[in-house]
Design a protein around this nucleic acid. Structure first.
Length: 950
RNA sequence: GCCAGAGUGGCGGAAUUGGUAGACGCACUGGAUUCAAAAUCCAGCGUUCGCAAGGAUGUGCGGGUUCGACUCCCGCCUCUGGUACCA
């Protein structure tokens, strides 16, 4: 029989589907294991070879665990809602619902081609009303609860109302937006609008006016993690700060638990660090600096360095700090207003540049230093941010580089309070050295001074200890069409009300014109009847952001068609949490943070049994492509384009600023991906046909300058770089094409063989031949050149047994530690060994097929059937290795002199040190090296080596 | 700037606890087979000296610990990713 992978693949794809091989059911008799992939957003471009890297890795692990006797949940679905889907729909003019469904069909067929063992019965898609009903339900729970910091628990808002009615706000220690305290009596005196405004300060899903990232190009607001360098992550449009009324989620309530929860997780250190930095916990204190002109007003600053307070020589506030109007002197009013105006109009990206010159203005007034009673100036400056800490700082130019730069710029006094002379390399702000000029702190080390000053401040009522987080509440409104509608409505007072749970889902109405409007009004606002369901009531017309549906989808897989709960308690208690989560690093602070937050909230609600959703996380790297491009001079000569060969650029050392590179379709390039890649005559002709605007261009090569038409007998070398696979660079490799040529098993194994799964690496078109050869060799253990079945029942050779069992052991170890590249290497070694001893024994091939099954599901399934089995290899037990074949009777000891190998001896296992030494000394080549010199030492490492030191 | 990770042949990458560096594959070179090609098989393949046997040297750079260092410690360089006035 000939190896015909196309036939094998279509045969088994059908059988697996017909027999529902990968369907799982809750089964308490077996241990559960939950392997999850980050579900894809079904884009119009389809999958490229980079996407399946993680899917193949998790599939190998799932299959392996299944064969090891685990009940494995391995589902897949689609992140169908959100900005990307809508943006694609806008580009193509097709309704998002249709384009999304079409794309999903395409994704499904691509995924099936790879032979992934998903239980498609459990598929979810976030744009399905039966799914987003529960997204809306979770939102309502967030809306209807608040977070009590004393108990670290959530309580219903109704409980909060009771407290307010009896005691007012004083005794409440909750995660809340700041507001004026009120008494029970004051609460009763308020009207409903005022009361609901106060309650809004406590809800975990709440509406507030605040600065948001407004993206004009997308016509919507974005979350912090969707903005990169002042541009929108999707589309690259500029983002500005704009004040708008928006829904937010109070993720800050969970900041501390999100931080400490990570200690229990098996995530990479770098991933944990990224999340820790994003949460950004700092311990410090609030300190009050009284205003000299009005003693009842004081400025509350936040500092992590209370020890440096004696060095505080001025106060700086954010330009938009609430107290600025009060603190500004009459003479300075104009100047201060001008400054505030100027700062406000600066675009975001410039505002965050650290190289910039300090910029600020004195308010013309003074604060009193709480310890020295000195009068110090009050300034505003753009380096102080309103939304961190209190929006005000005590400036310590003696030990803070920003304050120092500012003091230098405006000639403010600098007081040294730390002596760093005893510490080498100590720099400003790095918490080293001894306190000086600081009264009772003098002589203390910085660390001791911090705690000493904290005690002093609290004892004397000058301030209070405090912990600050960089983490901001998450913006939850999008002025777009393609998302979950909010299950809320506003009454004629504008008060937000939750819809009744039994009226969910609130379905997204059909809309033909879903373009965003530049004024910030949502497309849904155009549907008058939908927007006003009853007289006096209006619906929220914003929709939820992309991360809403993806923050809990992994729970839905446990019970995907339940319509009375997001999943039944019974099923959640069985599957519990995700044991292994595989996905890209790009979700480090977005999806992974929000999911953990929602999961903790659901835990507090008593709906899930674990505090953390994802126990182990593996981040697969990206598969990159080669970008081929031509160099083009930026300044055109006589209006004509002037291309220049890459080798000439190198030779003449032409600076990159003068050049721009034009991506070229890889089909035109010879030696694609190699340093000598080039366009020949033919390639240039194809290029000009493709980009006719360059038909009059000049091409400069080592053979001189020529017009395109005159081009013969010379080639123009191209620039070859590693980069993203993208349509833009014409370097996308489609897995379907690779599979059509080499088969799915080859594709899978090659993706794994490329390198460690966590690493990014370029797709190498040539390398796949090695894996292809391997699979042919594997096949040749079963069939000879005449395509005859040659498996026999002979007693296997010892060498074969050894190779097989070493392989089983290694595959166990490698799969457990996700080292799939070395696992594939081991299969190659094993098959080479079996071929060397011409091994065709069924006793070897039977376990070998099972060992390789997780990696090459199609070929192994076919061979397993040919070996006479009726049941699928994928539910057969993974073979155990037999130690017997791995124990060696003798060991080769390298004999080293001063660490260099000079000879080798072979001794039986268990030889004594004396025997080893004796045998080593007996070697003539060793004696030659020792040459009568005295031996200083002999080191014998058991079972490893012997080293003679002379 | 700060934080994290990484630097090994022409290339992708192995080396599990400090113990024969370069597994496995690609590319390349030579040979076998073939009318020829493809395919397949065999051999070689860090650098350097040598006809060879054999030696020297070698895991970004400079030091250190050790009988022995890709691995541990100190100092530096480069690259990749994250982050950016967070007090």
């Amino acid at each position: 029989m000939k190896l015909d992978f196309a036939q094998i693949e279509s045969k088994w794809k059908k059988i697996w589907e017909d027999t529902k091989l990968y369907q799982v059911h809750e089964d308490t008799s077996r241990p559960k294991y939950y392997v999850l992939d980050m579900f894809p957003y079904p884009s119009g471009a389809g999958l490229h070879v980079g996407h399946p890297l993680g899917y193949v890795g998790s599939d190998i692990y799932s299959r392996y665990k299944r064969m090891k006797g685990f009940n494995v949940l391995h589902p897949m679905g689609y992140d169908a809602f959100g900005l990307p889907a809508e943006q694609y729909a806008l580009d193509t003019g097709v309704h998002p619902a249709k384009s999304t469904s079409d794309n999903i069909l395409r994704y499904r067929s691509q995924l099936d081609n790879i032979g992934l063992s998903f239980d498609w019965n459990r598929q979810v898609r976030t744009d399905d009303a039966a799914y987003y009903k529960w997204t809306q339900w979770i939102f309502l729970q967030l809306f209807n609860h608040y977070y009590d910091r004393t108990d670290d628990k959530i309580y219903p808002i109704t409980a909060l109302i009771e407290i307010f009615e009896s005691d007012g706000s004083a005794g409440v220690n909750a995660a809340a937006s700041s507001h004026e305290p009120f008494s029970g009596d004051q609460w009763h005196a308020m009207n409903t609008t005022e009361q609901s405004a106060y309650l809004m300060n406590y809800r975990l899903a709440f509406r507030k006016v605040g600065y948001v990232n407004w993206c004009e190009g997308l016509g919507t607001v974005l979350a912090n993690d969707e903005v990169k360098d002042g541009l929108s992550e999707r589309g690259g449009f500029p983002v500005i700060q704009k004040e708008m009324l928006q829904w937010s989620l109070r993720i800050t309530a969970y900041a501390d638990r999100l931080l400490h929860g990570m200690d229990t997780l098996e995530w990479s250190e770098s991933m944990k660090t990224v999340q820790r930095n994003w949460i950004g916990r700092s311990e410090g204190a609030f300190i009050y600096f009284p205003f000299v002109d009005q003693q009842d007003i004081s400025i509350k600053v936040f500092t992590t360095r209370p020890d440096t307070i004696y060095g505080a020589t001025f106060i700086v506030l954010a330009p938009d700090h609430d107290l600025v109007p009060v603190l500004t002197s009459v003479e300075k009013l104009m100047e201060v207003n001008d400054f505030s105006e100027r700062v406000k109009n600066k675009p975001t990206d410039q505002k965050t540049s650290s190289q910039k010159k300090p910029d600020g203005v004195w308010l013309g007034t003074y604060a009193r230093h709480p310890l020295t009673d000195d009068q110090i100036q009050i300034w505003i400056a753009d380096y102080v941010l309103k939304d961190y800490g209190t929006g005000a700082i005590m400036a310590v130019p003696g030990d803070d580089s920003r304050d120092r730069a500012f003091a230098n710029e405006y000639d403010l006094s600098i007081k040294e309070i730390i002596d760093r002379s005893q510490v080498s390399n100590a720099e400003i702000g790095d918490r080293q050295g001894m306190m000086i000029n600081s009264s009772f702190l003098d002589g203390l080390h910085v660390t001791a001074a911090i705690s000493s000053m904290l005690d002093y401040i609290e004892k004397n009522n000058l301030g209070i200890r405090n912990v600050e987080y960089k983490l901001r509440d998450a913006n939850f409104s999008r002025q777009r069409y393609w998302g979950e509608p909010f299950p809320v409505y506003y009454d004629d007072q504008g008060i937000a009300h939750a819809m009744e749970e039994d009226t969910l889902p609130l379905e997204l109405p059909d809309l033909d014109d879903f373009k965003p409007s530049p004024d910030g009004r949502s497309p849904l606002a155009r549907l008058k009847e939908w927007m006003q369901p009853y007289p006096g009531n209006t619906r929220e017309t914003d929709t939820m952001p992309g991360y809403a549906g993806s923050s809990w989808y992994f729970l839905r897989y446990m019970d995907p068609s339940n319509d009375v709960a997001f999943a039944s308690k019974e099923k959640i208690d069985y599957w519990k949490d995700v044991d292994l989560y595989v996905g890209g690093v790009e979700h480090a602070v977005g999806h992974l943070m929000y999911s953990r937050f929602w999961h903790k909230f659901l835990y507090d609600l008593g709906k899930v049994p674990t505090q953390e959703p994802f126990r182990k996380l593996v981040n697969q790297g990206m598969i990159q492509g080669v970008i081929e491009s031509l160099y083009l001079y930026k300044e055109k000569e006589e209006g004509k384009a002037h291309f220049i060969s890459a080798d000439l650029v190198e030779e003449r050392k032409i600076p990159k600023e003068q050049l721009t590179s034009i991506p070229v379709h890889i089909d035109f390039v010879s030696d694609y991906g190699h340093p000598e890649s080039h366009l020949n005559e033919h390639g240039i002709a194809s290029f000009l046909k493709w980009r006719p605007e360059y038909s009059d261009a000049f091409f400069e090569t080592s053979a001189g300058m020529k017009k395109a038409k005159e081009f013969q007998n010379a080639t123009i070398t191209t620039l070859s770089e590693i980069g993203k696979m993208s349509k833009r660079y014409h370097n996308v490799v489609n897995p379907d094409d690779v599979i059509a040529r080499y088969g799915a098993d080859c594709f899978r194994m090659y993706e794994m063989f490329l390198g460690p799964i966590e690493q990014s690496k370029p797709w190498d078109t040539m390398g796949i031949e090695g894996v292809n050869k391997f699979l042919k060799k594997l096949w040749s253990l079963f069939f000879n050149d005449q395509e005859e079945w040659i498996v026999n029942k002979n007693v296997p050779h010892d060498d074969s047994q050894k190779a097989l069992h070493a392989t089983i052991r290694k595959i166990n170890e490698d799969v457990e530690r996700f080292s799939f590249n070395t696992a594939v290497s081991q299969f190659m070694i094993c098959v080479n060994e079996l071929r060397k001893s011409d091994e065709h024994s069924i006793d070897i091939l039977n376990p070998l097929v099972r060992t390789i099954a997780p990696f090459a599901p199609f070929i192994s399934e076919e061979l397993w059937q040919l070996l006479g089995h009726n049941e699928s290899v994928h539910i057969a037990p993974f073979p155990e290795y037999d130690e017997k074949w791995l124990v060696t009777t003798s060991i080769d000891y390298p004999v080293c002199i001063n660490g260099k190998k000079r000879g080798e001896i072979n001794l039986p296992v268990g030889s004594t040190n004396a025997e080893i030494e004796k045998a080593a000394m007996a070697l003539p080549e060793i004696n030659k090296w020792i040459d009568g010199k005295p031996i200083r030492k002999v080191v014998i490492v058991p079972d490893k080596m012997i080293n003679i030191v002379i």
